[in-house]
Amino acid sequence: MALDKATIGTRYATALFQLAQEQQQLETVYADVVALQQVLTATPTLMQVLADPTLAQAQKAGLLTTLKQQAVPLIQNLIQMVFDYGRTTELPLILTDFVKLYDHSKGIAHATVTTAVPLAADQKQKLADQFAARIGAQQLTLAEQVDPAIIGGVIMQADDLIVDGSVRRGLAAVKQLLLKK
C-alpha cells in the first residue's frame, strides 16, 4: 500500500530536523525553510510545473537551480533529493512538518484568537500569556480574527484544542438546557 502524504511529510521533516541539529545549523535551516515556504506560497504554479510530467527534465533543472541558489547546503540537498525521488508534491508538507518540529523543540505555539470586536494590544498580550501558560508553551504567536457572529467573549484555538468562551456557545448551552427539561 502506498504511504500517505502525511507519513511521508513527517519522515523527511524528521530526517532534516535531526541532521540540522547534529550539524548545529538549526537556525539557518529554519530561516531557509521559512523563506522557501514564502516562495512557494507566492508562486503557486511553481509546484505544478516541477511535478508536471509533460515537461523535460532539463527545463525543470533550470528552475531547480534558481530555487536552490541562495539556500544552505542542507536545503539544497533536500530540494534536489525530493525532486529526484519524485516527491515534489510533498515538499510543502515536509516544510510544514519541519516548522512544527522546530516550534515544538523551542516551545513555540501558534494560536488563533476570535473575538467579536478587535482586541486592544494589552488585552491581546494578556490573552497570549494566559493561553501560553495553559497549553505549556514558552512563546505564543497569536493570530487575530474578528467574527461578529460570536456576539461576545473569546474563542482561542491552538492545533486541535479549542477553548470556547463565546456568548454564542453560552446561548447554545442555555437553549439545550431549556429544551432538555
Partner: peptide, 16 residues
C-alpha cells in the same frame, strides 16, 4: 429553576 444548573464555564474541546 431550569437554568439553575447553567454555569458559564469555558468549553475546552479537542477537535479535528
Amino acid at each position: 429553576q431550569q437554568l439553575d444548573d447553567y454555569s458559564n464555564d469555558l468549553a475546552v474541546e479537542e477537535v479535528g
